[in-house]
Design a protein around this nucleic acid. Structure first.
Lengths: 166, 166
DNA sequence: TATTGTTATACTCTATAACTATA
DNA sequence: TATAGTTATAGAGTATAACAATA
């Protein structure tokens, strides 16, 4: 059983959220210029990226996959639609807002990918491809672990609506 | 030489920033309630946490360590000072704004740590303490790698002021 | 002249509640 | 009645430029 000592635990406890934040900040700083050069925000880019790998997606799926709240997604839909990068597609369930990339949207996506590829290659070389794989696995597992915890155990306060009137 | 195939690379390329975002989102969701229960925002909490591990720090160091921009930090200083959680300390260099935790600030910090400890323990048990160590190492190395890249190579667009008038 | 921090300002994201439409 | 999404709204973070004070 991997029972850890209180002292070590405390050290990790405090640094995990920060380590994630700082790693993300550095990664973002590296790639954001390529995205902003095309007048896209990071959340908008996540939506394009998610759509590039799936034919069409509804708002709920996109919100979960891209970590974007529904109200933000509504605005992003409006903005990307105005720019002709995405388009709504018909759906059996009329409640669902399903969208796909337009040809222009896909072209823009490919352009950004191509322009940022040298930086990706450079990072992969410098960091090590195998370690990157390991890191990705751990990140995804961490997320799954936390979500499982939320389902089963509830000694923690409720995950929503805690701050009250702020 | 760890030269990776284009296809695999592409797969990773697109998912690293998202994996970091989602892992952070999950971790935040787990611990945020404990912080918000004491009417603290996450950036405010990072400042308290950084100060808890160092006697006193100046704004520049805190900004870098907590990933907070100077203007935000100014507001956070004001807010935490008003609440009596931090206090300014004298400094040789009169330009520097150095702060430390007050007794109340330290007490609040300890309270939050204590309240969230069960969740930390649960996560460490579920995920594995050794894997958490590995993850932390990789995250910190990733950040260092990216920063080193920024120093040496500059085929990428400048890291600041790219979006122009937006 | 360079550095530190604050102010001013604009924009976006975050978050929740309330509402509409569909199932 | 439950679900999907939009609207409204408040608040906080993000980002930059311009300025003040100190070194």
């Amino acid at each position: 059983m991997p029972r850890i000592r209180n002292k070590e635990l405390r050290k990790f406890e405090k640094s995990l959220p920060i380590a994630l934040l700082r790693a993300r900040e550095a990664t973002t700083r590296l790639f954001k210029p390529f995205i902003e050069n095309h007048d896209l925000t990071m959340p908008q880019w996540r939506v394009l990226r998610a759509l590039a790998e799936a034919d069409a997606l509804d708002a709920k799926t996109l919100a979960e996959r891209c970590v974007i709240l529904p109200p933000s997604l509504t605005r992003i839909f409006r903005s990307l639609t105005l720019r002709g990068l995405i388009a709504q597609v018909e759906c059996n369930d009329a409640r669902r807002h399903m969208v796909r990339l337009t040809d222009n949207g896909r072209a823009l996506f490919e352009e950004v990918v191509q322009e940022s590829e040298p930086s990706y290659l450079q990072l992969a070389d410098a960091f090590g491809a195998d370690r990157l794989d390991t890191l990705l696995d751990l990140l995804n597992d961490l997320r799954n672990t936390v979500q499982t915890m939320g389902d089963t155990d509830d000694q923690a306060p409720p995950l929503r609506k805690v701050a009250g009137g702020r």
